[in-house]
Design a binder for these strands. Structure first.
Length: 282
DNA sequence: CTATGGCCCTGGTTGC
DNA sequence: TGCAACCAGGGCCATA
């Protein structure tokens, strides 16, 4: 599922292909992919605009639109589980939901098997991005900030890490991987962490995401692909995700899968000791 | 404030 | 073998 590293990879790879191009035509094949907009309104807003910049914020992909050199709104993409962006020439795709024809003959294509993803046009980018927590790879995210933020709440670590208003960019895979590497149980309460533990968690979140970006993300299931159709390679580095029943790479203990906050959660019971007393059940 | 559960979707897997 | 039920999952919303 596309999380921060996958979206970063997509942004880096499509940027050189679409930045500076003008949208000549729009084809909408599944209108819900546009959000609440009608295809007609979306087409009016996007047709004739130039894709001036391509960047990422958390799991969002942002395309700056310009007309005559002036800011003219944004396209904001979220791939959710099965969304893909590509800009290769042709090759039929039954799951194509939206297509922007560009002035160089190429097309920016949004495909999405499960139809959860979105590519919306907005004139108010802040309204979408302002609720997000800090970027895990940004300056604001420091060990001290994390320690304070964790202590100011009383929630289980994993659901908190998945809360995009708390910290923006982690999904199920990288939350599990980061917690394992920091040797923290996903159900530990956030306000129980020492500065030392928070520091470890901070460092492992950053290291995990950075390494995943270097590997062009993870293609655990059949869905995520780079815009060039290549799978990511980080799944080969997974320590726990999807490895229930197999031995822990650190201690050899059989890894388990539990459910935390309705999310499949993978961990090592030895490396990530359960919080004491209450709530040791699933 | 925090937790829970439904909803959106579909392809793949499981169960009978 | 055939088919129905079930599941995964991010974000959002309603409810407790």
């Amino acid at each position: 599922m596309p999380e921060l590293p996958e979206v970063e990879t997509v942004a880096r790879l499509i940027r050189p292909r679409i930045a500076g191009r003008e949208v000549k035509a729009v084809r909408v094949r599944w209108r819900a992919s546009l959000g609440a907009d009608t295809p007609a309104a979306f087409g009016r807003a996007v047709r004739g605009a130039r894709l001036a910049a391509v960047w990422r914020r958390a799991k969002y992909l942002v395309l700056d639109l310009e007309r005559g050199g002036q800011q003219a709104g944004w396209l904001v993409g979220h791939l959710r589980m099965t969304g893909r962006l590509s800009c290769d020439r042709e090759r039929p795709d039954p799951y194509e939901r939206l297509r922007l024809e560009l002035d160089d003959g190429r097309a920016l294509r949004f495909s999405d098997v499960r139809k959860f993803g979105r590519l919306v046009f907005t004139r108010d980018l802040e309204a979408i991005l302002s609720r997000l927590g800090p970027e895990p790879l940004g300056k604001e995210f420091t060990p001290e900030w994390l320690h304070r933020a964790l202590r100011s709440r009383r929630r289980m670590l994993k659901p908190l890490l998945l809360d995009q208003t708390f910290l923006a960019g982690l999904g199920n895979i990288y939350a599990d991987e980061s917690l394992f590497r920091a040797r923290l149980h996903p159900q530990r309460l956030s306000d129980s962490l020492t500065l030392r533990s928070a520091l470890r968690l901070h460092d492992e979140i950053r290291a995990t995401l950075s390494e995943a970006i270097r590997h062009e993300g993870s293609s655990f299931d059949a869905f995520y692909r780079t815009p060039e159709g290549r799978p990511g390679r980080y799944q080969d580095q997974f320590q726990v995700y999807g490895r229930a029943g197999r031995p822990c790479r650190r201690c050899g203990r059989r890894l388990v899968r539990i459910v935390v906050g309705q999310r499949g959660t993978h961990l090592c019971r030895r490396c990530q000791p359960a919080p004491r007393v209450r709530g040791s059940a699933r």
